[in-house]
Design a binder for these strands. Structure first.
Lengths: 340, 340
DNA sequence: CCCTCCTGTTGAACCGGTTCAGTAGACGTC
DNA sequence: GACGTCTACTGAACCGGTTCAACAGGAGGG
């Protein structure tokens, strides 16, 4: 049973003033004598009064919460290193004000309905859009719904919405260049689902860097950001007549699986195959050999996204936020290209 | 800008009835003529009316949301395969009614304050307590705060609170027995943080099963549920004068790291070392060799926990819920004990 | 034909905050 | 001493739902 919380009327009674004065004192607005204010604050403290969020939300027309919708195929709800850290960052920005984050996990077919409900419910003031896809219906959807939103990703993905971006390309560019320096010429890519804009972007970074370097654009296979996909793609790549000497994966999960497949097939890493992931998951330092990867500060990203949405809600004309790009983290999984 | 949503007064006006009638019709209570009800529903549909959650929450004294607090050391916010699936399950139970889940990520030192705010805020109707520790202050805390709660774990951890448990011991018992069948006699354990009750429970399951089998209780080392801890512990175990022939880890992350260390040290798995994890993460099937693990249905757990909390809030005397236990999933990382 | 009961409907109060439009009283000015 | 101004404070309305008590009007019973 929820214990009855004191209301503003209780505080007013104890302090011997009107509810209005209590409200003014607590939101420190001018027009309250110092002395009275102290009395009111003392009374509030004595009763342990905290404003009722629903009442406040109703009165102010502000929910004091943001929404985050994770859309996943039911079978893909695995561990994603991004979200815990991202959410922690959002929380860091929100927590100060006592605001909260409503998390919804849903499937692609119900996604639109979830956003519609979020807008109609008036339980969140805005949403953070992550994992943007090509032709993502959400920017238009939130606009139509009048639901304030911030895009977590490149500004051009958001159809004019404010965005908070963290460039993952530099890490790929650095990775591919490093491989080239090491003498690799057949550099493959195991890509994430190309419907995701960040997955596509990673692929393009790999491709363009190879072009810039005048290297052949190696084979590309889908890895789906999953262990299974990474394993299967690796098997295929290593079965080629001229297998690549290096593989750049879309994320660590696929790369780790790829590492295992190489071992299983007796292909030594990095002697005959160099491997690179993305995400810098905790495991990378402890695979065998340690997996080269790329580090992005998901926590900072979450914090910045929350603050940007704050700004949007305040009616400010928030500029697109650009965070420091992801960094390539070389480890023992890469080495000189094998001699032909 | 949030588009102005229609209110119940708009619906009433359009249908030509009072607000009361609209409210009655929409919560289908008796005392409204079929005909009128149809008219009201049509009007509501035409305007696209959805009740305002804050207004409803204020009026009913129910927030229509649950809270989940994840307490983590800042550096430990990695990928945990449990929570995404657990949250998806909670969502499945809540989503039907349009209720939501507020997720807070915090650090141990602020944990208590977060729960206190949750209670004072009246923004959630109750909380789900996960990751219970020994002498966990939270059951007493939520009781003192009058905050309804359900314990995700064994009933005896909850100080009388309703619990939803999923036994992880059978998987450990089965794993250790299987190892014994395979001829192993030196079976080590790399445990999770013993302050967590489930980590301790896993350790005890390992220990008691060894006793039951009349086998020596092998060495135990802390692994902290992390890759780093798993790697370090494995290194130590393999450096022993008489190293274990099998290691049972507290989770897959530590086990996967252990697998890598074994490879690095040239200890073949499973020929000279059998390895078992827990969680059945997506990666386990694609490590080399595939990692034996234990599968628990985190999604079902979340769903059951949400339903149990529903019951508690409805004032029902909800019995402790017991879900099917975790299952041992043998894979190629275990094999016959090496001949001495 | 009157009284009672039931059905369908409504006005008003309420939930717990915020805020607008006042008002009482102190003070200064001429 | 009449008037205006400023400060400190308050009553009442409002946010958008739910719900209680009351009330028409028709049916049924005596």
């Amino acid at each position: 049973m929820v214990r009855k919380q004191p209301t503003i009327a209780d505080v007013a009674r104890l302090a011997g003033v009107s509810r209005t004065s209590v409200s003014f004192a607590l939101n420190d607005r001018p027009g309250i004598a110092e002395d009275t204010k102290r009395r009111i604050l003392a009374a509030a403290a004595e009763l342990g009064w905290k404003p009722s969020r629903p009442a406040r939300a109703l009165s102010l027309g502000k929910a004091g919460a943001f929404g985050l919708v994770l859309t996943r195929e039911p079978e893909d709800i695995g561990a994603d290193p991004f979200f815990p850290a991202f959410i922690a960052g959002v929380e860091a920005a929100l927590g100060e004000r006592g605001d909260g984050l409503m998390v919804h996990v849903t499937t692609p077919d119900r996604e639109q309905a979830v956003y519609e409900r979020l807008a109609a419910d008036r339980r969140v003031d805005g949403v953070l859009l992550t994992d943007l896809r090509h032709d993502d219906p959400r920017p238009a959807l939130v606009r139509r719904l009048g639901l304030p939103a911030v895009v977590v990703g490149q500004s051009e993905w958001g159809d004019g919405l404010t965005s908070v971006s963290l460039d993952d390309r530099p890490a790929y560019v650095a990775a591919v260049r490093r491989l080239a320096e090491l003498g690799h010429r057949r550099i493959a890519h195991v890509e994430g689902p190309q419907s995701f804009r960040h997955a596509h972007r990673r692929r393009m970074a790999w491709e363009e860097t190879l072009r810039d370097l005048g290297l052949p654009v190696g084979p590309v296979l889908p890895g789906g950001f999953t262990a299974e996909g990474g394993a299967r793609a690796t098997r295929e790549l290593l079965a080629l007549a001229e297998p690549p000497t290096a593989i750049v994966y879309g994320n660590d999960l696929a790369a780790t699986a790829g590492l295992s497949v190489a071992q299983e097939l007796g292909v030594p890493v990095p002697e005959r195959l160099s491997v690179i992931g993305y995400d810098d998951t905790p495991l990378t330092r402890y695979t065998h050999p340690p997996l080269s990867s790329a580090r992005a500060d998901a926590r900072a990203w979450g914090e910045a996204a929350a603050r940007a949405l704050d700004g949007v809600l305040a009616g400010e004309d928030v500029a697109h936020v650009v965070l420091p790009p992801a960094e390539f983290v070389p480890r023992a999984s890469i080495g000189p290209a094998p001699r032909p």
